[in-house]
């Protein structure tokens, strides 16, 4: 395998990882854009999506349904479940606190995250679960590098969803209402936008994306666990900030960039630093890039300059 093939392989690795980050980051960024709230429980929604679809899939496989169909059915179970969950989280934990000091909903978000983990632990147990492969992963060779059909599928699904979301936000009346609410909720309210409805829908859409991300992640790695949402949520949040939180294109860009940074970081830090630093510093590398970006552009790559709003 030549040096260039290795590099190409690392780019592929980064793209797959990044498209998953991007999907999850969208949920963070949408909520943040409208409520200026870090929805810390978002990672747990991803986890619930993965576990619900796994649970449905295992029942279906037992009754002999073919793989891709099981995948679709698992997804159709996970998405509404997560939508409902997202809706409930907003209603119960965030809406009563909309006028509270800004850190109050952060604490309830952490509470929700702990509660969801505990519930998942009770419902599905504490074991790491193996997820049956439903989408075939046939390796395709591009030069000396490989990418599997499953990985291509993940990238494709992410792209389609992101494009769809952009259309929804920019071309539909609902999207206009969402943008208006993000700019100024009071004025939007005066113009006849039902703010509560818009916020609920934002959570529902974000959770649907999270559900898809959960299913894709568990397919890709063949593993699901009640704790899987935490780290993924953290990475996605980082990606959202990198791109400029509140900006949808920024979240996608941030996600893909973070994936590439991690992948190239883990791949090359060791050789570049002469073995002094190794692949265990990949997160340090990612955070340093983030800090550098924020020092140069305090609102992220594509974020707008926000004046007085702290």
């Amino acid at each position: 395998m030549s040096k260039f093939d290795l590099f190409l392989q690392q780019i592929f690795n980064g793209l797959v990882l990044g498209s998953i980050y991007a999907l999850v980051a969208l949920g963070y960024t949408m909520v943040y854009g409208i409520l200026q709230l870090i929805n810390f429980a978002h990672g747990e929604v991803v986890m619930v999506g993965a576990l619900v679809s796994l649970w449905v899939s295992l029942k279906l496989i037992a009754s002999g349904v073919p793989g891709p169909l099981v995948f679709v059915l698992g997804l159709t179970a996970a998405v509404p479940a997560c939508m409902l969950l997202g809706f409930l989280i907003e209603r119960i934990a965030y809406r009563p606190l909309r006028r509270a000091p800004r850190l109050a909903p952060l604490i309830t978000a952490i509470g929700v995250s702990i509660v969801l983990q505990a519930l998942a632990m009770m419902l599905w147990g504490k074991q790491y679960k193996s997820v049956p492969q439903l989408i075939p992963a046939i390796p395709l060779h591009v030069g000396g590098a490989t990418i599997s059909t499953l990985q291509l599928f993940i990238i494709a699904v992410s792209c389609v969803l992101m494009a769809g979301l952009l259309v929804l936000i920019n071309k539909t009346p609902l999207g206009r209402a969402m943008r208006a609410t993000a700019q100024d909720p009071t004025v939007a309210g005066l113009m006849g936008v039902d703010i509560n409805r818009v916020i609920s829908i934002t959570f529902i859409i974000g959770s649907a994306l999270a559900a898809v991300a959960g299913v894709l992640v568990s397919q890709n790695y063949g593993i699901a666990h009640y704790y899987m949402g935490f780290l993924l949520g953290l990475k996605a949040f980082t990606a959202a900030v990198l791109g400029g939180i509140g900006n949808l294109t920024g979240a996608m860009l941030g996600g893909v960039l973070l994936g590439l940074i991690e992948s190239l970081g883990a791949g090359y830090i060791g050789d570049l630093s002469g073995g002094f630093f190794g692949s265990h510093y990949k997160d340090v590398f990612a955070f340093l890039v983030l800090i550098l970006v924020l020092v140069l552009r305090p609102s992220g790559l594509l974020g707008e300059r926000v004046g007085g709003r702290a």
Binding site: Y32, Q36, T238, V241, I245, F287, I291, P298, V306, A310
Partner: peptide
């Protein structure tokens, strides 16, 4: 400001 600071401190 605000949440940008949050993520940097987290990092």
């Amino acid at each position: 400001r605000g949440d940008y600071l949050a993520i940097v401190t987290l990092g």
